[in-house]
């Protein structure tokens, strides 16, 4: 869950965190794509999808929505007291995933490749490191063929360049965009799942190490220069534009 930028972001009274008074967290867009990619894979290859989330406000709605979309299980890691940093989130999720991996229940772990409060996109790599699995980020497609021990992963680079990677499963993927936009699920279906579906709750393990990073200060960007509005008749404007361009040696 990430801050919803529909509301204006304000720095809180401590000067180093967001003011959450009017914030209703929203599921990160990339995570929605990660779920969609998982559901597409299930539709194509069979298997099952488990959606996992750390406890936070409104997260039950998100998990019920995931169940309504086609996720088979929903697991909530409860006992998370303050919004965790990315490293802490990985530390909370890894033991639960470890348990599932040991039972050979997991072939693929997908997460958003970044979030508006994790632009570095470190959750996937942190998880992979803790679980001893390979990681690929900025993923835009996954193909699992006859050899179920491997997958072909499409990864995007700048400038319209794509690459295909072969990867041994299980693996962790950071999804940038699913092969199709995330699906819509009618509210009636979500409401039905709220009655019949179940969210499994597991307790968060105690953190194994304190975060090595500390937020020192949070500020809004400071305005630098402003755009200059050129006024006048079209002819006057055109003449001023040519003057400016010639002054800069562009004409």
């Amino acid at each position: 869950m990430v801050p919803d930028i529909v509301e204006e972001l304000e720095v809180g009274p401590d000067g180093k965190s967001l003011d959450l008074e009017f914030q209703r967290p929203i599921v990160s867009e990339r995570d929605e794509h990660a779920l969609e990619q998982a559901l597409l894979l299930k539709e194509r290859c069979g298997g099952s999808v488990t959606t996992m989330a750390l406890e936070s406000a409104d997260v039950d709605d998100v998990l019920f929505t995931a169940l309504a979309k086609g996720s088979d299980r929903a697991v909530k890691v409860a006992g998370v007291e303050t919004p965790p940093t990315t490293a802490e989130a990985a530390a909370l999720l890894a033991p639960v995933l470890r348990g599932l991996l040991d039972q050979k229940q997991v072939d693929l772990i997908v997460t958003g490749c970044s979030a508006i409060d994790d632009l570095d996109g470190l959750l996937g790599p942190f998880l992979a490191e803790r679980l001893g699995l390979p990681y690929l980020g900025i993923v835009t497609g996954v193909v699992v063929g006859a050899d179920s021990g491997r997958a072909t992963v499409l990864k995007e680079y700048a400038g319209g360049v794509h690459a295909e990677y072969g990867i041994a499963l299980p693996a962790v993927l950071g999804v940038q965009a699913a092969e199709k936009p995330p699906r819509y699920v009618p509210v009636a279906k979500v409401r039905a799942v709220m009655k019949s579906g179940k969210i499994e709750t597991v307790s968060a393990a105690a953190p194994d190490q304190a975060s090595l990073l500390q937020v020192v200060r949070m500020t809004k960007p400071e305005a630098a220069g402003h755009a200059e509005m050129i006024e006048g008749s079209p002819e006057e404007i055109a003449s001023k534009v040519t003057d400016i361009l010639s002054a800069r040696g562009l004409l």
């Binding site: 009618p186 509210v187 009636a188 279906k189 979500v190 409401r191």
Partner: peptide
């Protein structure tokens, strides 16, 4: 056709 949303 989104009756569930209407009811909410």
């Amino acid at each position: 056709g989104e009756t569930g949303l209407f009811e909410t």
